[in-house]
C-alpha cells in the first residue's frame, strides 16, 4: 500500500509539471506567432462579399450566412501555412487557430482558420461567428498574451495579431489538450 501511495504522489507533480511545461511551450509559440502572423494578410482572408452576408438572418433560410461564406485563397493559405509551422514548434498535438473580430454591436468574433487536430477551447462546433469572448477582448484591447484554462483538459494561450499600422486586427489561439481525444470532431 505504502509503495502505491508513494507512486501516486510522485505521479501528481509529474502531471502538473507536464501541464506547466505545455503552458510554457504554448506561450512561446504564441509569442512567436504575434511576430510572424501578418495582420494585413489576415485582413484580406474573408471576402468583402462574405463580410456583407455574414450576419444575414433569413427566417426562411437558416444557412443564408454560411452558404455565402467565402475566403480569398491566397491570403488564407499563406496564413494557414504560418500557423501550421508554428504548431510544429513542439512535438505533441498543438493547433494554432486564427480569430478575428467582426464589426458588430455588441462585439462579435469568429474563428477564421482552424487546423488539423481540430482543437479549440472557444469554438462551438459549426458556429460561423459568436459573441466576443472576454479573454479575447482583453487581448485585442491590451495586446498582452494570456493563458486560458476554462474548459477541462484544455490549455490555450491567446496572442495578438497586428497589421502594418500596428493595429491589433486579430489574435491566435495556441491550444492543446492534456489528454487528446482522437475521435472528437471527426464529423
Amino acid at each position: 500500500m505504502k509503495r502505491v501511495s508513494v507512486l501516486f504522489l510522485a505521479a501528481c507533480p509529474l502531471f502538473a509539471v507536464d501541464a506547466n511545461r505545455m503552458e510554457r511551450d504554448l506561450d512561446e509559440i504564441a509569442r512567436v506567432a504575434a511576430i510572424m502572423v501578418d495582420g494585413d494578410v489576415c485582413q484580406r482572408i474573408v471576402t468583402a462579399r462574405a463580410l456583407q452576408t455574414i450576419f444575414r438572418v433569413d427566417p426562411r433560410d437558416q444557412w443564408a450566412d454560411s452558404d455565402n461564406y467565402d475566403v480569398n485563397d491566397e491570403a488564407f493559405i499563406r496564413t494557414k501555412k504560418t500557423l501550421m509551422r508554428l504548431s510544429r514548434m513542439v512535438d505533441y498535438p498543438v493547433d494554432v487557430n486564427l480569430w478575428m473580430p467582426l464589426a458588430a454591436n455588441p462585439p462579435r468574433i469568429h474563428i477564421v482558420i482552424r487546423n488539423r487536430y481540430e482543437m479549440s477551447q472557444f469554438w462551438p462546433w459549426g458556429k460561423l461567428h459568436q459573441e466576443m469572448i472576454p479573454e479575447m477582448q482583453s487581448v485585442l484591447s491590451s495586446g498582452q498574451r494570456i493563458a486560458v484554462k476554462q474548459k477541462p483538459g484544455f490549455i490555450s494561450v491567446l496572442a495578438p495579431v497586428r497589421n502594418s499600422l500596428n493595429d491589433i486586427v486579430g489574435l491566435v489561439e495556441v491550444v492543446t489538450r492534456i489528454a487528446p481525444d482522437a475521435r472528437e470532431n471527426v464529423k
Binding site: R114, Y117, E118, K187
Partner: peptide
Amino acid sequence: QLGYGHAGKVGPEF
C-alpha cells in the same frame, strides 16, 4: 462512415 473532419483530422481507425 466518413473518417475525417472539416479541418482534416482523421480518426485513427480510418
